[in-house]
């Protein structure tokens, strides 16, 4: 069953076309990796899906609903959560507070009840707190519960950002380079989290990633992108073997590569 359908997406910055007629589908429960050389437009696709960028043309459907023209916060409300390439956490808050902000879409009370902190708000706050605690446990963040983000090492921040996204109980999680800047060990931990998220929580994951080992371990399918266009799609092994993908990465045609390695 299709969860996300991107159809003929086109994103432009001024005169530059960053994504040009890109289409792909994603089924529910799947881990899909978006790969491609730098500047291929992977992050742009992400930003278009989470509606931080406006699409020039094309359609993005989530769960059968057209989200191409929705505003960013509405998309989040539908169950799409995301992380950012260079982590965009709330730096002056603790890990706990960050995760609680992740619960924003789950709130059922409004300003007036907040002002008087009615019993409904109290119950809700405790429920949020319980839910967040579960996530803290899931990601092994107990030690950092009350630390400020500024005091955390980069690897932990990456995890906290994913935890924050998971706190909103999304159906689709967009991970923008989850393993960038992580050590080999941390990256391998990351692979475990991603697998756990898919299996235990049933979250579908769309990720942009350069680390092919991670992609190979976690992704069900891979979509390769270059210069804003679709190059290849299939299993990780298939896409890695695809001559166009090799050419896009190495800048030479596949035949040449073979002759070089053969000679």
């Amino acid at each position: 069953m299709t969860l996300l359908a991107v159809d003929n997406l086109k994103v432009m910055f001024g005169g530059v076309t960053a994504v040009d007629g890109f289409s792909f589908d994603m089924t529910r429960g799947e881990v899909l990796a978006l790969i491609g050389p730098n500047g291929a437009g992977k992050s742009t696709v992400f930003n278009a899906i989470s509606r931080l960028y406006a699409a020039a043309s094309g359609r993005i459907q989530f769960d059968g609903r057209d989200i191409t023209r929705l505003s960013a916060h509405r998309v989040a409300g539908l169950g799409i959560a995301r992380t950012f390439q260079n982590t965009e956490l709330f730096e002056h808050a603790t890990v706990l507070q960050n995760l609680l902000i992740g619960r924003h879409t789950a709130r059922r009370t409004g300003l007036f009840r907040h002002l008087f902190f009615t019993s409904a708000v109290r119950r809700e706050e405790i429920a949020h707190r319980e839910c967040v605690e579960e996530i803290i446990e899931f990601f092994d963040l107990q030690a950092y519960r009350h630390s400020l983000i500024t005091a955390l090492p980069y690897g932990v921040r990456k995890i906290v950002e994913i935890a924050r996204a998971v706190a909103s109980e999304p159906e689709l999680l967009l991970l923008d380079e989850p393993a960038s800047g992580l050590s080999a060990e941390e990256a391998s931990d990351m692979a475990f989290w991603i697998q756990d998220l898919q299996k235990d929580k049933g979250i579908s994951i769309l990720m942009v990633e350069h680390n092919m080992a991670l992609v190979g371990r976690t992704a069900d399918r891979v979509v390769a992108l270059a210069e804003g266009r679709l190059l290849a799609a299939g299993t990780p092994a298939e896409v890695q073997q695809h001559p166009d993908v090799i050419e896009a990465y190495l800048g030479v045609s596949a035949d040449n590569t073979q002759s070089v390695s053969g000679g």
Binding site: A76, F84, E88, L89, E91, I101, H104, R164
Partner: peptide
């Protein structure tokens, strides 16, 4: 406070900026 710290990430968390 989320908006104060990072508008872009607040919007991605479903906060109507």
């Amino acid at each position: 406070s989320a908006i104060r710290d990072s508008e872009i990430s607040a919007a991605a968390m479903g906060i109507h900026i």
